Computed example of a mutant assay.
Amino acid sequence: MLTSQQIADRVRQLGTEITRDYRGRDLVIIGVLKGAAAFTVDLARAIDLPVVMDWTAVSTYGRGSTAGTPTLLKDIGEELAGRDVLVVEDILDSGATLSWLMARLRKQAPASVNCCVLLRKPHTVAKPMEPRYVGFDITEHWVAGYGIDYAERHRNLSDIHEVRLPSAALTASA
């Protein structure tokens, strides 16, 4: 679906945009584990600014199916009051997880809270959510690779691939 070269090129472009937009500001990058780990690290290296990085983990997906309600598994340690926050996420699907997380972060009174998503599925976004930075728009298919998993597998692939589900899995998740 997306080659490692396409991903690397787009990450560099996003890094340039973020560098321009946040120059002279106190930027905290918050990566959402586990899926956005590779993207977050590569993006931080493409940003030509001093940044602080932190990590959070939110569970909404089970092994290949959506679970629905976001659950915080790991909180951040950084103080956000008065600082600019950029949440880095792997996929914007329904928008429920990202909306929930950003609302939670806003309660800490940051100067700003924006998000950067590697992949956006524009046809499935149900919550009003417009990320400031988007790597790629994709179809509603399941994907894996470049840190993104399917049932905790395939994160180590350097390209992003469409996951072809067996017919039984499609029926069960529909």
Score class of each variant (00 low, 15 high):
A81S: 12
T124K: 08
D137L: 03
D159V: 14
K127Y: 05
A169Y: 04
W142Q: 03
V88N: 04
A36V: 10
G147P: 02
G24W: 14
K107C: 02
D159C: 14
S59Q: 09
Q6V: 00
L165R: 00
A38D: 07
Y146F: 15
F136I: 07
G35R: 01
D137V: 06
A57Y: 01
P128W: 00
R83E: 15
V143H: 05
G135N: 05
I7H: 00
G64W: 07
S94C: 02
V58M: 12
A109G: 12
D26Y: 09
I160Y: 05
V58W: 13
K121A: 09
Q108S: 09
W55D: 10
V58L: 13
V117D: 07
I18Y: 08
R20L: 15
L105E: 12
G82F: 15
F39N: 04
I47F: 01
R132Y: 09
A96V: 15
P110E: 06
Q6R: 04
G35T: 02
W142M: 05
V58K: 09
E17A: 12
E79I: 11
T71N: 01
A174N: 14
R10I: 13
I7F: 00
A46V: 01
P70Y: 13
N114G: 14
T56Y: 07
P166W: 03
D48Y: 03
D26S: 11
V143M: 08
